[in-house]
Amino acid sequence: MHRRAMLLATGGVATVAGCFSTDGTEQADATADFVDSNVLTAPPRDGSTDTSWLRIDIENDTSAPHGRLEAESRVRSEDGTTMVTGEHVTSYLPANTTLRYFVDAEFEVDAVDAVENDVVEANTRVESTQLDDVTVRNTDLSAGGDVLNVTGEFSVGVDEAERLVVVALIYDEAGRLRGTGTDIKYTLDTTEPVEFGANSDGFRAPAGSTPLESYDVVVFDGYT
């Protein structure tokens, strides 16, 4: 594996001037800061041929959760040419959590001069309620290519719901968030358990990266 530390150029940091908890007390600002970027060559976990990778770390170091986040990175050569552009979307970034993701693409690692990062879109306030009275059962994590899917069923303490959003948070052995899967459920009769499949792509990673270890499932009422 060949790694090269890169100059980090951050074009966007998402912040919010303040949000409030359910009891009306003001919470700390939610942030999404690019804290590290790197390029490397290595085979994918499920392959043997070296490819080029972009590794990005985004941190929310506050006590407030961050909502949907779309990030974009551009790998540039010394003359400023954009060699490759990588994008990543996560639906939820918990408080005091670092998100790490990888983008595999065709570029010459030794020709890279800088990586520029931007927040393209950010919901810095979670404008919904995370349900506490939720029981999640029979969960399972499956993988296919760069797609992960967390399946299971949940029960909530209400009889009906117009729109519930299930978010699966996938973590590696170092405790970093590696991405999220989502499933949206409409007009539910919740007197019976509700099946879900929260999935997303963007989980392909190079050999030697920290393995995935665990996942959490949370349910929101009208998540945006």
Rank of each mutant, 00 (worst) to 15 (best):
T22G: 04
D172N: 14
R176Y: 12
T62C: 12
G47V: 05
G144T: 12
G157P: 02
P44R: 11
E153G: 01
I170D: 04
V84F: 05
T98H: 10
D159M: 01
T139G: 04
A71M: 13
S37Q: 09
I58E: 10
A168L: 00
V112S: 12
D104T: 10
V156L: 09
M83S: 12
R125T: 14
E70Q: 09
R178A: 13
S63F: 02
Y215M: 03
V218L: 08
I58H: 08
E78C: 04
D104S: 12
C19D: 08
S91F: 09
G144C: 07
D159K: 04
V120E: 00
G202Q: 00
D159A: 13
C19A: 11
N149R: 15
V89F: 06
A32T: 13
A105E: 11
E26A: 13
D29P: 12
M1S: 14
A30P: 14
F34H: 08
T129H: 03
G47N: 05
V75T: 09
D36K: 13
L188G: 00
L177T: 06
D133G: 15
D118M: 11
R4A: 15
F220Q: 07
R4P: 01
S142W: 01
S77M: 04
T82P: 01
S63T: 08
E121V: 12
N138Q: 10
R204T: 07
F102S: 07
P65K: 06
D118I: 11
G80L: 08
D104Y: 01
G152F: 09
V167F: 02
T191P: 00
M83Q: 15
M6A: 03
A30H: 12
L169Y: 03
G24Y: 02
T182A: 10
D221F: 06
A161W: 02
F203G: 02
D29H: 11
D146K: 03
T31I: 15
S128Y: 05
L141A: 03
I56Y: 03
L131W: 00
A111Q: 15
V158M: 08
R178W: 11
T82G: 01
T81I: 09
V134D: 05
D29E: 13
D183N: 09
S155F: 00
N199H: 11
D221M: 08
L7W: 06
A95T: 02
V166D: 06
V13R: 11
I170H: 07
D146F: 05
E26D: 05
V84K: 03
D23G: 02
T124F: 10
A28F: 09
R163V: 11
A174K: 11
Q130W: 01
F107I: 10
L54Q: 07
A17Q: 14
V39N: 05
A205Q: 14
I58G: 13
P94R: 06
R125D: 12
D216T: 05
A95R: 07
S200T: 07
D33N: 05
D50P: 03
T180M: 03
V147M: 07
I56S: 12
A207W: 08
E106W: 05
S209H: 08
G197H: 05
G197Q: 07
H2P: 01
L69A: 15
T124L: 04
V109T: 12
T49S: 03
L212E: 10
T139I: 15
G145K: 02
E72Q: 15
R76G: 02
T15G: 08
E121F: 14
F220H: 15
N123D: 14
E116R: 05
G179A: 06
T41E: 12
R55K: 14
F102R: 05
